[in-house]
Simulated assay, not measured.
Amino acid sequence: MSNERQIQDEDLMDVAQDHEQAARLRKALKVLAENPKVGGKLQEMAQEVLSGRMGMKEAIETPGYMDALGDRMNQIRHAAENQTAAEREESRAKFAEWQKKQDEEEDRERAERDGPSLNLVTGPRRGGGRGHR
Rank of each mutant, 00 (worst) to 15 (best):
S91M: 12
G123V: 06
L42S: 05
E58C: 02
R5F: 13
I7L: 03
H78Q: 14
R110C: 01
V49E: 05
A46R: 00
A22P: 08
S91P: 03
D11N: 09
L29V: 01
E90P: 00
D114A: 14
M45S: 00
R130A: 05
G128Q: 15
L120A: 10
E81G: 00
R72S: 05
E97A: 14
T122K: 06
K57A: 10
G64N: 07
R26I: 10
I60W: 11
K41Q: 15
L50S: 08
K94G: 07
E87K: 13
Q21M: 13
N3M: 09
Q83W: 05
G64A: 11
M13L: 09
A93C: 06
S2F: 06
G127D: 04
L12G: 05
N35H: 14
V31L: 04
D107A: 12
R24F: 10
G127E: 11
K30P: 05
M13K: 06
G40A: 06
L69W: 00
G123Y: 03
E109M: 10
A23Y: 11
N35R: 14
R133G: 09
E61R: 13
E97V: 06
D71N: 05
H19L: 15
M1I: 12
D67W: 08
K37F: 08
V38N: 01
R77P: 03
E106T: 05
Q47L: 10
Q43K: 15
E112L: 09
M66K: 02
L50I: 07
T62M: 02
A33D: 02
A111W: 13
T84M: 14
D114K: 15
E106K: 00
K94R: 14
A23E: 11
R53S: 13
M13S: 00
E87L: 04
A59P: 04
S117P: 05
E109N: 15
D9Y: 02
L42F: 01
A16F: 04
L50H: 08
N74I: 03
D71I: 09
K94I: 15
A23V: 14
T62S: 07
E109Y: 13
R92H: 13
D114T: 15
H19W: 12
R130H: 15
E109C: 05
A23N: 14
R126Q: 10
V15N: 00
R108W: 12
R5Y: 13
H78D: 07
V121S: 01
E97R: 09
V38R: 02
V49Q: 03
V121Y: 07
Y65W: 02
T122E: 06
S91N: 09
M66R: 02
K94H: 06
Q21K: 01
Q99K: 04
